[in-house]
Structure formats: structure tokens, C-alpha cells
Amino acid sequence: MTTPFPFLRLPRLALIPVLQNMELIEVIAFSLISKRAFNLSKCFYKVSPGSIELLVGPYAIETRIDDLTMFFYGNVPEWVEILHHDKLMRWINAGLSTKQWIQRILAVTKCPSLDKVILNEKPKYDVLSVLDGVSKIFNLHIKPKCCNALAKRAVEVLSPVTSSITLFRVPLSNQEEFLRFWMGNVECLCIRYDDLSRFQFNLNDLLASNAVKLELRKVPMSLRDLNRFFSCWLHRTSNHRLEHLSVQSLKNINEDVLLKGLNATRFTEQQAIHFQSIRVVCHPEFTRGFEVRRIDGKLAAITFYTTFGTTYINFDVWS
């Protein structure tokens, strides 16, 4: 008969190197042994901020951390599936709900923030309650199949702790709700497949945005309206936080209309190379670019690119 090794009776100094060399799946399993094991597991393992992703589907929450993926089923709390190094396994009767599992992972990894939360479809459980206690979400993606009710609640509940929101369609009912969300403090907002026409979106709304980075993939703006927007930026009468804007052009670019009164200078070859090397927001190769200078000396670049027959105008503050 084999006598169990009294691991938890070892001195703390002896436990440290063992725990530090465990893989994450081993640390999580160890944390389930007892309350003392859970407390120890929180002391010696740490992942970098923004290492955890949550994908929410109709039946499961998929949690990804490096090479470890865990599947939690809200309607079957008795077990969890684990994919580790391409090997699939199942833990049964761990005694944790889906919410407790997520909290356990965040505690063990000492990472109270999530890199990405993707809402694909409406789940058969309250996913937002699972996310209680998450201090930061770097990226929230709300996909087209996510029902309006959940999408709207997610925007309302998670916006205060989210840096970047990508909406494939805006799940709000009227202009008042839209403007309350639009004028909030989301750092980065990307709207993919919604032209915002039902909210009578116009230049005044664009000027009222408080976002640092703003991408409107299906919102067509006239060249004259964009010219007025750039002019307001030059005179510091628009969103002072703005660092990046990308919008769709209604027609082929007429530089005389777009750049009228902006004192824009065309990029030299060296400026184009420099801009490509320092830009933060990734987009396809621009075809041409111009530099404009604000009254306080800050520089911005206006660039254009065309993809799949659609022309986009990009505005980037770069100095």
C-alpha cells in the first residue's frame, strides 16, 4: 500500500519552487484540494495582464489562457472540459459553478482583467453575473448573432470597465439611448456593419464623440462634413481626446473638397515611411497621405486606402 506524500506539510520554502514550476492546469487542480491549497495556489503563479479570453456561446463559456482552454457549461455545472496540449479531458464534480470557476481562474492567475470577451450568441445562463468582479476588459466584441437584449445589457454593464468595444450592430432602441452611449468614456469604439442611419447620425454626433479611437466601417460621411470635422479639430473645438478616426467615404476622394482650408501638406516619401513605422492602429497600405497641424502645434495625418471597392479615410494624431 502506498502512503500519500504529505505535500502540504512541507515548509513554505520547500513548497515555493514546486508550485512555481507547476503548469497552470496543475495549479488550478491543486487549488481544488482544500482551502489552504487554494490560498497557496494564489501566491506563486501569475500570468501577464490581458492573457485571458472568454468566448460566450449558447451553451458554454470558453476560457483561453495560452495553451489551456476550459469549457464551462452553465446548465451542466457538474463538470468542465479541458483542452491542454491538444489533449481533451473532463473534470467531474469539482463543486464549483461557472461563476466560481471564472473567479477561481482569475484568483489563481492573479489576473483580475480579461484581454477579450466575445459574445457570440445568447447563452442559456446569466453570463453577465459570471463577469462580476472582473476589474478590466480590454476588448469586448458583440457579434451579429448576439440578441439585442443581451447586447444592450452588456454595453450598459461592461462599458465602465472596458477599454475597447467592437459592435457588429448597435443594440440600442432610440436616439436618446444611442447618444448616452456614444458620449460615454469608451476609449476605443468600432462599429462594423451598422450605418447608424436610424439614429439620424450626422456631423454633430461625430463631433460629440468622446472616444480616443473611433472606427465607423459602414457609416458614410460626405467630404464636406469631414472637412468641417478636421477644421474643428485644428481649432480645438472637437473631441480633444481623439487619436484615430476611420470612416467610409461616400464617393471618390476629391482632395480639394476634403482638405479645403486645412493647410495640409502632402507626405514626402520619408514622412510616409515614418508614419507607417509609428502608427498604432493597423490598416491596409494607404495610397496617399497629408499632414495637418493644429493651432497648438500637434500634428495629424489624413490618409486614404481602398479595399473591396470601398474607400476609407483615416485620421491619426501622431505627434
Rank of each mutant, 00 (worst) to 15 (best):
R279M: 11
F286I: 14
R279S: 07
H283W: 09
N263A: 10
V257K: 02
I273Q: 06
V281I: 15
D256I: 11
I273M: 06
T265K: 14
S277D: 09
T265M: 12
L259Q: 04
R266C: 11
F275K: 05
T268K: 01
T287I: 15
V280I: 13
F286Q: 04
C282M: 05
Q271I: 14
K260T: 11
Q270C: 07
V257L: 07
Q270N: 08
P284K: 09
Q271S: 09
L262Q: 06
I278M: 11
I278R: 07
E285I: 13
R266S: 12
P284L: 13
A272C: 09
C282I: 11
F267M: 12
L258E: 03
L259D: 01
C282Y: 10
D256F: 04
G261E: 07
Q271G: 03
T268S: 08
K260F: 13
V257G: 00
A272L: 05
V280A: 04
R279G: 02
V257M: 05
H274M: 14
Q271V: 13
R266E: 14
T268V: 08
I278W: 05
V281G: 05
V281Q: 15
T287C: 02
E269P: 00
V281A: 14
D256R: 03
Q270S: 08
F286E: 04
C282P: 00
A272V: 07
L262E: 03
F286D: 02
Q270Y: 07
A264Y: 01
F275G: 05
I273P: 00
N263M: 10
T268F: 02
P284F: 11
F267I: 14
N263S: 10
T287A: 06
T287Q: 06
K260M: 11
E269W: 06
V257P: 00
H274D: 12
Q276M: 14
P284S: 14
K260Y: 07
A264T: 01
F267S: 02
E269M: 04
L258W: 04
H283L: 10
T268C: 03
S277F: 05
